[in-house]
Design a protein around this nucleic acid. Structure first.
Lengths: 152, 152
DNA sequence: TGATAAAACAGTAATCGTTATTGATTTAAG
DNA sequence: CTTAAATCAATAACGATTACTGTTTTATCA
């Protein structure tokens, strides 16, 4: 039987308030403001539990620690080769690639995971700066944190 | 300066002889037949070096240890949810998905990684067996180990 | 060849991210 | 309010990988 816990609720709320897919460590450091005695193990345990319940998503990037996503609506991710930032992509579903993969395959394909790589806008700006001998930044647009809707 | 090493050559040869994307541990255990004193650190160091040189590929599955692939020609992988086996897929390139991802994105997308999931043929057979109260296997086709050509 | 320097080695300790264990605390149901 | 189970904090243990150390191998050049 699942019992309520303030720590778990707080972890979920924190994740839903962010779009940068924080690590367990980042969540831990933030939650210590509200729960000075919370332990990293509690964070990991609840992240695993919430993932099992389907309330959040665990994202394994294959480089460094896992990232966590409060948005369980299907969507794809981009990771910047420059700064490592992980961000959501607004794009259609790629269901059709399952059929392409199935075509010459003897097993049963029922899903896929896709990551896109490249440079984020900020790193592109920074590179231009570097090649221009650190010319001053004139206008620096802020990073947008858009939400992909869960319902619809 | 890069110097020849028998251990490194052997690791590369071993990887090129297989299509099951072994882990460092598996490579290590196999190489101990030829090099009784080889250390796991040597295997890891050379796998990292060979990857850097572009002679092999490191595959991070996000579940358990990394896998290594002697085939650096671009191709996609399938992982079985039943037995965890990682296998090559024969399918066309998915270059076009980069454009789909780029469409509403402000950075620059230059690559992707795709994994497919499901059940391999062997696990599907095993499941049928289970539901049929372990009826005897009549004909069991062997696992094929095909090679995707590096040249073309 | 033999001497030399750099690279690679085996062996081992350390690191990182994560999971498991323990005895105390919190939750929810009677 | 009692009780049992779930959760907790603290900490130890774990698996995969990397770093360190002193020795051996490789390639260069005398």
């Amino acid at each position: 039987m699942l019992k309520y816990s303030r720590q778990r609720e707080s972890i979920k709320n924190f994740l839903m308030s962010r779009c940068d897919h924080p690590t367990a460590e980042v969540i831990y450091r933030s939650l210590r403001k509200d729960f000075p005695n919370i332990s990293l193990g509690t964070v990991y345990r609840n992240l695993a539990l919430l993932t099992e319940l389907g309330e959040i998503q665990t994202i394994s990037t294959g480089e460094g620690p896992d990232r966590f996503d409060g948005n369980v609506a299907p969507h794809y991710h981009f990771q910047c080769r420059g700064c490592g930032a992980l961000m959501d992509l607004q794009m259609q579903s790629l269901e059709h690639i399952n059929l392409l993969a199935q075509h010459e395959f003897s097993g049963e394909i029922d899903g896929h995971s896709v990551f896109f790589y490249g440079r984020c806008r900020d790193c592109i700006s920074r590179e231009k700066l570097d090649t221009n001998q650190m010319r001053k930044v004139i206008d620096r647009t802020d990073k947008k944190c858009y939400k992909i809707r869960n319902d619809s």
